[in-house]
Nucleic acid binder design. Structure first.
Length: 235
DNA sequence: ACCCAGGGCGTTG
DNA sequence: CAACGCCATGGG
């Protein structure tokens, strides 16, 4: 089976077992962007807490974020781990949008994907994954977002090395799939959803894993053992 | 008590 | 450019 067919087969299996997710979990484009920054290296649950705090204190706008005292902002997003860094970067970002883009994300999102990506990467606190998430889920332009879950899932399937770089991962999808906004959005959503069930759940033996026989380990087919090391579960 | 979540940045070699 | 230290919460 060629790579393209395998990628589509995996997508179908995830979609069939988990159902369409219609990501990103947010009530507005603004929330997508803020959430993308806040979720860096932290569980989404912690981000929800932070977003709730921001809503409660009426901080869901660039104007508000630009003028709030930074320590106060840091306190509201304390649950997202690197709260001082994130508060500084969030505020800097908010001010950039106000000054350079008339406070409108749609102005930032105007350029084509390569140019938009460049501009996002120039912003402190926005790296590759965050930039791509913003492009895909906020700007609604097709680019494939990859992450730690992608590396784990697809190295187990044998399509990536366990130490694959971000570019290597992104190329796998970009080179074998047709550029399609909905497919890219839903596929990444499925990978994360799968990761949260399979990887976060401390269940090494994942008998109900939809990827089943596609999961390998060290080049060998390992059947239903597609999750973590088969050591920590009693039986 | 210990592990690790949907990273990114600045600094080194 | 890869490797490393840093940032520094909360749930299992």
């Amino acid at each position: 089976m060629d790579t393209r067919t395998l990628l589509l087969e995996i997508y179908q299996r995830l979609l069939n077992s988990y159902g369409a997710r219609h990501w990103w979990p947010a009530e507005s484009t603004f929330e997508v962007v803020i959430g993308a920054i806040l979720t860096q290296n932290v569980a989404w649950k912690n981000v929800e807490t932070a977003i709730e705090n921001l809503k409660r204190e009426n901080q869901i706008s660039f104007e508000a974020l630009a003028s709030i005292a930074q320590p106060e902002l840091a306190d509201l997003i304390r649950s997202t781990r690197y709260y001082n860094q994130k508060a500084a970067r969030l505020q800097e970002f908010a001010r950039l949008i106000l000054v350079e883009y008339e406070g409108k994300l749609e102005n930032l999102f105007q350029p084509d994907v390569p140019e938009l990506r460049k501009r996002l990467l120039d912003i402190r606190g926005i790296g590759k994954e965050t930039a791509d998430s913003i492009i895909l889920y906020a700007a609604q332009k097709p680019i494939f977002v990859v992450d730690a879950y992608t590396r784990r899932t697809f190295s187990r399937v044998g399509l990536l090395p366990t130490d694959a770089t971000y570019e290597a991962m992104q190329d796998l999808f970009a080179n074998h799939l047709d550029e399609d906004l909905y497919l890219f959005q839903e596929y990444h959503a499925q990978i994360v959803g799968h990761g949260n069930r399979v990887c976060l759940a401390r269940r090494p033996r994942c008998f109900e894993c939809p990827l089943g026989e596609y999961c390998r380990k060290e080049g060998d087919l390992i059947g239903s053992l597609c999750c973590d090391e088969p050591t920590s579960l009693p039986d």
